[in-house]
Structures are given as C-alpha cells and as structure tokens.
Design a protein around this nucleic acid. Structure first.
Length: 516
RNA sequence: GGUCCGUUCGUCUAGGGGUUAGGACCUCAGAUUUUCAUUCUGGUAACACGGGUUCGAUUCCCGUACGGACUACCA
C-alpha cells in the first residue's frame, strides 16, 4: 500500500463562488500531489439538487485555472475514472447502499420530516442534550429494524418514500489517523445513523464521497476541518464496504478565521472590512448580488497562491516568498498547522507588492496600457516601460499605477498645497529659473547629472539644496511623494521638465502665494 | 448542551525540557546630507491559567478557561 500511486481530489459542491478557504484546500491538495508525483483531480459534488447554482462549476474551474491549480482529471478534461460530477454518477451509488443493507450495516427508514422533528423535540424535552437517530431512538422510529419484515416489504412495494441509513454499532471505539492531528478516537455511541441514500435517489455526501474516493483510487483525503466529526462514520463505511485496506489517509485542514474577533471567515467580513473573500468576481444569479474577487481586485495569481500557502502551512525556516515550484518542493502535510488562522489583509497586500515589483517592465507596461487608453494617453512603449519601472516600487496593485503616476503622462492640474505653503519662499523663482536654464543647456539629461546641476546651483546661490527638494518634486509632479526625484525627472525628459518648471514659477509667482 | 479539534508577540508563525524564545506583517524611531506608500537599520511586543513529572518546563501529562468545528434526506 505504501507504493500506491498518490491521487488526491478537490471536491467542492457547486453552490456558489470559491471562498479563500476552498482555494487553499485545493492548493494543498495540488501541492501534495505534485510533490509526490501524483494526480490532482477535480470532482464536483452536486448531489444536492436543491442547492445547485448555475455558473458555480464554471466559476470554480476558472478560479483554479487562474490560480494555476491545474487538475489532470475532472469535468472538461475527462480521465479514466469519470465521470467527475456526482450527478452523472447517480446510478453507481445505489448498489453500495444495497450492499450495506444486505450485510446488515444499513437499513431503510420511512420517517417523515415531521416525525423526525417530533422525535428530536421529544428527546430534547426529555433532557437529551443532542437528539439523534441512533441505536436507541431508531427503536421507536419507522424503519426496517423496528418494523415487522412484512410491513417493511409492503411499504417498499407501495413505493413509499424512504432513506437508507447507516447502522452505527452500539458500543465501539472508532479510531482514525489524521496526518495533521494524529490519532482521533470517537465512541460509536456518539455517532448518529446518518442518511446515506436520500429519498430522491441521490446519495448523501457521506456515501458518495466514500464510494467515489474508492472508485477513483484516492490515496489521501485532504479537506477542511469541518469534516473531522463525520470522518469516523466514513471509516465505518470503508469497513462495511470491505475497503478498509485501501482506505485513503486523512488530513483535516484548519479553518481560515475572521481577521478580527472570532469565527470562521465569511463573505460578510470581507464586505465589512473591505477585502475580497472570493477568488473571482461573482455575480450571484439568484440575489443579483455582486461580490469582489482577488483577481479583479488586482492580485497577481502568484501572490494569491503564496498568501494562501502561508495561511496554515509554514516551512521550518523563515522563508516567506515561494513560487509555486518552490512550494511544491517544500510542502509537506506534516507541517500544516493544527489551529485556525486569522486572515490578515495587510499581509496579503504586502505579498502582492513583493510580486508586483519583481514583474518586468514590459509586462507591466502591457497591463497598464488599457488604463492609459481610457485617459486618451498615448506614449511610446519605451517611455511607458521606464515609468512602470519607477512606480512599481511604490505600488501594491497594478490598478494603483494611474493614481501613482498620472503625472508622467499629464501635466499636474493640482499641486500639493501643504508643501507649497510650507516651502515656497522669495528665493524660489530665481533659484528654479536658474536650475531650469542649466537643465535646458545640459547635454547630459540624466538623473546623476541633474542632481549635480541642482546642487551646484543651490550652493552658488547660497541656498540649502535640501530645503527645496520636495518643492521641486511638487513643481514637476504635483505630488509630495513618488519615486526618486532625479530619476523621475530624467524619465519625464528635458522639454517637458522645462515647461513644467516655467508653468509652476508663473503660477506661484514671486512671493509664493499660498495656494487657493 | 453534547462530541471532537485547537491555544507562542495585535496578526501569520519558527522553536522545543536548560534559548537573550527567532522571522514576517502591523506599529514606532532613525537612515537614505529631499518626500514617501518603496528600501535599509533599530525598537516595542508572546509561550492562556492551575496542578503534576523533572535538578529544571514555554516544551511532556492531567485539569480549567477560552476559541473553533460538528450536531440536516447540505456539502
């Protein structure tokens, strides 16, 4: 069994957009598969026809694709264990449910919702803390264990609605090994007789999951912690179906929690705190509500992956920046943490910045172009690339490029008032004019040369260069902050710089009117 | 309520019976004889609590507290 091929699956249900946590689960599955030279499979768990949301499956696939989590088997790509939608596997499950009934490990139950509700109420009133359909209560319910055989047959013959429930043993210890958490032991008396097969002819998660994992030869089940409580039931299912030998290994991942306060991260938190919780924008077909996604918010897929990877997993050293290949290289399930992680949006932004500034200028220029077109700006590729090279150092997102660097394309409309008010003095017109004249005549319009000219001029006029630096920046760009001044001026170019200096001197005049 | 899982700086975490408990984000201070959202340097800041075990526990064990998940003919 140790030489078994590693096969893992990401198995979302198509009930809505993919949450951060979902992508992280997919990522860990992917990393583990790649690391082990195995297969990463996508399986759509759409056994609940009532919760089906149109577009959700396509959304999930597009999300995975964007994030670079390519699956080798699944809807759309096929594979020899297909189909990969549970709704298309419907006929496969019944026989296993029947087998369980035949072997006495499951039974028919005819109870209506009202009857189940009644039972729970009754038990609650009787002081039972957690009413459940179990080895005690099933005695009083309508099922093939409590009813006479001929009545059961009659009911089946009449086509009465029924479900098939697992028969949990009365008093057993169920042990399961979790790769992340170690041994977990549960007493069977705490479990309930879960429905395996619904009256609509579909299996529930529990049956479908076990059957499909077996049929698809899944070696490791890597899923969210919310499944841990039902894992013992799954173990029993493998046993009763005779598949214990090839039962997958389990790894239950910790949850991603709200940044503030307590609890699981939800879409509401994102709305409240101003960050996306989904991968892509999602337009809910039912409510019409639009939710923002990381892709549209300006995140680079590499950054998104890196953020998610570090949320619940950590290498033994202090390395924080990982490419997908590096993650594959160092990932192990053993190093996944046990406790939930609060999502930190500030750190997420930091990650994006880290990746953004390593992007080459040609790529950024290309991505930035459409924005420029919106403003009717036309510049050469060469110029645009230089600009990108300067502003990427300051930017968190590509979409910030315009607000950060519009002055590279348009003359300033406004000047930072506080800087003008604070720094402009009677020496300014003469000083800036002198600097400008020298700029006009220099044959070498480079950052280094410009700085020399500027400083010499100041010294000659008995002025402190530092006093007018920020002011100079504002004259050129209108903004108080930005890239290194001289590099900025070099890129903007001689002619344009001359014009901007002259315009500003004219505007602020001899005395340095306080603006406005 | 019950069952299960968890608990190291504000946050993500490394570490592990004897450490100045390390890194990153955030924050603060200095630097880049100019700004800054970049970069650099430095600082503040943590082993939930109580019992054991031990020469010694943050590390192992047990309790308590707190947090989370689950408790559907949903996944």
């Amino acid at each position: 069994m140790s030489d078994r091929r590693i096969r893992v699956r990401f198995a979302p249900s198509p009930t809505g957009p993919l949450h951060l946590g979902g992508v992280r689960t997919a990522l860990y599955n992917y990393l583990f598969a790649k690391k082990m030279g195995g297969d990463f499979i996508l399986r759509i768990e759409d056994t609940d026809q009532n919760r089906f949301v149109p577009g959700a499956e396509g959304y999930i696939i597009e999300s995975l694709k964007w994030a670079g989590l390519n699956f080798s088997e699944g809807p759309g790509v096929g594979g020899k264990y297909g189909p990969y939608r549970q709704s298309e596997r419907k006929e496969m499950y019944r026989q296993y449910a029947d087998q369980l009934v035949e072997n006495g490990n499951a039974y028919y139950a005819f109870d209506t919702n009202e009857e189940l509700e009644e039972m729970r109420e009754r038990m609650t009133k009787a002081g039972m803390s957690s009413p459940k359909y179990d080895h005690i209560t099933r005695e009083y319910m309508k099922n093939s264990l409590s009813l006479p055989k001929d009545e059961v047959e009659q009911r089946l013959k009449n086509g009465e609605h029924y479900v098939i429930r697992i028969k949990i043993p009365r008093n057993e210890e169920i042990k399961l090994h979790d790769v992340i958490r170690g041994w977990v032991t549960v007493k069977s008396a705490e479990l309930d007789d879960k429905v395996l097969f619904k009256s609509d002819g579909m299996p529930t998660y529990h049956l479908a999951n076990v059957v499909d994992d077996y049929l698809m030869q899944i070696s490791h089940v890597i899923r969210g912690e919310e499944w841990l409580p039902s894992a013992p039931t799954h173990v029993l299912l493998y046993r009763y179906l005779g598949w214990e030998e090839v039962m997958p290994k389990f790894a239950h991942l910790p949850l991603i929690l709200k940044p503030d306060g307590n609890g699981k991260l939800s879409k509401r938190d994102g709305d409240r705190l101003g960050f996306p919780v989904f991968t892509l924008n999602w337009n809910d077909p039912v409510s019409g509500e639009l939710s923002s996604g990381y892709r549209e918010a300006g995140y680079l897929p590499e950054a998104y992956i890196n953020i998610l990877a570090m949320l619940g997993w950590h290498p033994s050293d202090n390395k924080e920046l990982f490419s997908m290949d590096e993650l594959v290289e160092s990932f192990t399930l053993e190093r996944v943490s046990k406790s939930g992680a609060k999502f930190d949006f500030e750190k997420a932004k930091w990650y994006n910045h880290q990746y953004l500034k390593t992007k080459d200028n040609a790529y950024l220029a290309n991505e930035f172009k459409p924005t420029l077109a919106n403003y009717d700006v036309e510049v050469s590729d060469e110029y645009l690339q230089k600009v990108c090279g300067l502003i990427k150092e300051k930017a968190t997102f590509l979409k910030d490029f315009w607000s950060l660097g519009s002055y590279f394309f348009l003359r300033p409309m406004h000047y930072d008032e506080s800087v003008i008010a604070k720094k402009w003095d009677a020496n300014c017109p003469a000083f800036f004019t002198a600097v400008n004249e020298k700029f006009k005549t220099t044959a070498n319009f480079t950052a280094a040369e410009l700085q020399v000219i500027y400083e010499q001029t100041a010294t000659e006029m008995n002025l402190k260069p530092g006093n007018y630096m920020q002011l100079f920046r504002v004259l050129i760009s209108g903004q108080a902050a930005g890239p290194a001044v001289w590099e900025m001026v070099e890129v903007i170019g001689k002619t344009e710089t001359n014009i901007r200096i002259e315009t500003a001197i004219e505007k602020f005049g001899v005395i340095g009117i306080s603006v406005s």
